[in-house]
Amino acid sequence: MHLLPVYRIRLNLAVATLVQYRAALIIWIQGLVVEPIIYMAVWTQVAGDSGSVGGYAASDFAAYYLVWMVVRHFTVATNPNTIERRVRRGEFSPMLLLPVHPIHMDIADSIAYKIVALPALLVALVVLALVFPPEFALQSWSIPVFLLSLSLAFPIRFLFGWVLGLIAFWTTWARSFYGVFVVAEVFLTGRLAPLSLLPGWGLALASILPFRWMMSFPVEVLLGKLSLEQVVLGLGVQVIVLAVLLTLLLAIWPAAVERYTAAGA
């Protein structure tokens, strides 16, 4: 329970820092909107020719990207690059002196961003919904299950980034590797297209690597593209992935800290 005040103070601090730059709100809105608009426009064109693509009509794509934006917002996490920078520049030193695990600051920071940038997300959603009218086919269980899978997706994405970031403690080439990670994210989180539109091996890859479970899966749930069995199975996989990542973090972190001291000496 000693963590609670740590979180409260860190959250206040992060919110105060972010609120300083109010003009950034406009840039956030713009950054949120442009990419989904590109993909929506492209897929609307593709769907327009034949009515629908792989089960998605134009209005389904609109719904897909709206939900995808919500999921992206609530799963925003620390980038592996940030961890690499901390290792390279020695920025971990002061963080390691504190009596709490540095991951808690990062969790608090990314929660703060979600709160402060929420107005930007809402504006972006309204704008997009006006330009590309969406259509939802909700099941009775869609929304609660969506919220459940979303609340699993955030820690998965967060821990995945953090565990990958730990590679930087061992090699200076980590930064190039993270470039590959960013590319994989474009294809495998359902950003470029819904995963079901990728070739079969793409979906398989996204399911084996945790990419599908940290972003695409909640979107699929809310869009009603999955049967009840697939949803239950998916939630189970999310729990397993989360447990594996947590175990990895707990196992690797002490060794990483050991390496870090060695590097500084």
């Binding site: 020719d49 294809f187 990728l198 070739p199």
Partner: peptide, 14 residues
Amino acid sequence: GGLSIVYSHTSDLN
């Protein structure tokens, strides 16, 4: 990669 995914579902884009 993006192009190849888009064009695996259509033969012309507008």
